[in-house]
Design a protein around this nucleic acid. Structure first.
Length: 495
RNA sequence: GGCCCCUUCGUCUAUCGGUUAGGACAGCGGCUUUUCAAGCCGUUAAGAGGGGUUCGACUCCCCUAGGGGCUACCA
């Protein structure tokens, strides 16, 4: 036995990485990294009816994109093929079928489990009966007393069967949870859970517990929806005489109406957020703080800082509403603080076709950096600016009630002022300050107002009522484009 | 219905018996300003209810209410 922390994220490959699963994976990873332990990815694929083609690859790939890579278990090799690493494999649960079968047999030997021959129909009828009688719906224990020899004979005769846990029928069990402390349950209300299905594969309850033991998992960090089945899991550990891992049941992620986060009300796939352009570090930051906070007076943490500060015992008990406004705010923050070239790479796909001058495109993108929440939003803000010919029909070039003639006069003056500057210093990066000083000086000298000069100038350059400042626009457009637009605006006003 | 869990501003949260109950997002207001953003400053807003325990409860206990989860040969 090691005393190192060994934790696992164990999704079932039903298609995609769920945002709640991401947080579970993250908390596992944080604990592992913090303690120098192992973070294991195990795939729980025992439900053959719910397998989705490519589901495993998708989950692993998404985790990798999020910066969450398991150092043990399932991964994708350099040919993008599912592979496994580590000394506790296999890490694909169905490959462990023989182990599970053996453990189930052992439980039967120990009289901690039994064969059950009840048909799905009988079970359904039973449930229905109990329901209408207002009683708890659970297995009535019909096969519990069937002698093993008789059961084995029936199996030999080809009868279909499942294996059920033979749970105590009286007394209480008190379980301990890192987040919730003691929780106790009445054994009489807990169902004799099926652990081996009629297809021979184990259910979660057997597979997860046995695998956790075999893999020497020290902490099971999983969603709160597993809390009710904790006694069954502890029963399995106890039956084998194994030491159970520490359990930490995470509060659920919620819809706005406080129901369990669902597809109907929210995007629940991590890739949905990635596709929209949310940055991995923003999603991680956001999700980490849903249900946990190291101090309460700080919102922005890098992955490394989260690793340093994470504390499982400080995780909240109550569910957390998944609120996109905060995610937006965090994303804006990261979008503005990443290196320029990263920002450009993110926005490029949305705007690269708007103008053939890619340098122009890039600088326009930079112009609206503090106006966007998501990279895709640059397109709308920048499309008018990037068009070589500006359409003024939707814009007001003249300021407020300013006469057209006056706007023309101001534009002519600016045009004249700018035409003497040579191209290279016109468009250099620091030029916006020079443009501003120069133009404002002229306005002062002439005794004009800022508004009646700068508004027409800005709209002439951008073609938009709302846009970045004229000085920035001049710099980004460069001399030729700027002068062309001034002319165009003047002629638009003169018609 | 039964079992289990949960309950601080609209939302995410801090507080681990003594605070003017703090921060953040959103909202609102202001500053700046040629517009819109950004930025900066300010501001509205909370301990579900009722009992205890205690000199003193958001904090501990009980009850009630409300919410959620589970109740599958799914995880």
């Amino acid at each position: 036995m090691t005393d190192k922390v060994r934790v696992r994220f164990a999704p079932s490959p039903t298609g995609f990485l769920h945002i709640g699963g991401l947080r579970t994976a993250l908390y596992n990873e944080l604990l592992a990294k913090q303690t120098g332990g192992s973070f294991i990815l195990r795939i729980e694929d025992t439900d053959q009816t719910r397998l989705v083609e490519g589901g495993i690859e998708n989950i692993v790939r998404t985790m990798k994109m999020m910066g969450l890579e398991a150092n043990e278990g399932v991964y994708l090799d350099n040919k993008d093929q599912i592979a496994e690493r580590g000394d506790y494999g296999p890490y694909l649960q169905t490959k462990r079928k023989d182990k599970h079968t053996a453990y189930a047999k052992q439980l039967i030997e120990m009289d901690k489990a039994y064969y059950c021959f009840c048909s799905a129909e009988r079970l359904e009828d039973l449930r229905h009966e109990q329901q209408t009688a207002g009683k708890p719906t659970m297995y009535d224990g019909k096969c519990r007393a069937t002698p093993r020899e008789e059961a084995e004979k029936r199996i030999a005769n080809g009868e279909k069967y499942v294996i059920r846990l033979k749970l105590p029928k009286q007394g209480r069990i008190t379980a301990w949870d890192v987040i919730r402390d003691d929780i106790s349950f009445d054994w009489s209300l807990i169902d004799d859970q099926i652990i081996i299905k009629s297809d021979g594969l184990p259910t979660y309850h057997l597979a997860a517990t046995c695998d956790d033991h075999d893999m020497e998992i020290t902490h099971v960090i999983r969603g709160e929806d597993w809390l009710p089945s904790l006694p069954k899991h502890l029963f399995i550990f106890e039956s084998f005489g194994w030491t159970a891992p520490k359990y930490a049941h995470l509060p659920l992620l919620l819809n706005a109406d406080h129901s369990k986060l669902s597809k109907r009300q929210n995007d629940v796939a991590v890739e949905d957020y990635l596709n929209k352009g949310y940055l991995p570090q923003a999603i991680i930051n956001f999700v980490a703080l849903l249900g946990w906070n190291p101090t309460g007076d700080r919102e922005l943490y890098s992955h490394e800082e989260l690793i340093l500060m994470f504390d499982l015992a400080k995780v909240n008990k109550a569910g957390a509403v998944f609120n996109l406004e905060k995610l937006d705010w965090i994303n804006e923050h990261y979008l503005r603080s990443i290196p320029e070239d990263e920002y450009l790479a993110l926005t490029h796909p949305y705007i690269k076709d708007l103008n053939s001058d890619q340098n122009f495109v890039d600088r326009a993108a930079l112009l609206v950096r503090d106006r966007v929440t998501l990279p895709s939003q640059v397109a709308e803000l920048v499309s008018t600016i990037l068009k070589e010919t500006v359409d003024y029909s939707q814009a007001n070039i003249a300021w407020k009630t300013q006469p057209k003639e006056q706007a023309v006069e101001r534009l002519e003056a600016v045009k004249k002022l700018l035409s003497d500057i040579d191209e290279s210093s016109f468009a250099k990066r620091e030029a916006r300050v020079e443009h501003e000083q120069r133009i404002k000086k002229m306005i002062m000298d002439k005794g004009w107002g800022n508004g009646d000069t700068l508004w027409p100038l800005r709209v002439a350059l951008s073609g938009q009522d709302k846009s970045p400042s004229p000085f920035e626009l001049l710099e980004v457009l460069g001399k030729e484009r700027s002068l062309k637009r001034l002319e165009a605006a003047i002629s638009h006003l003169s018609t």
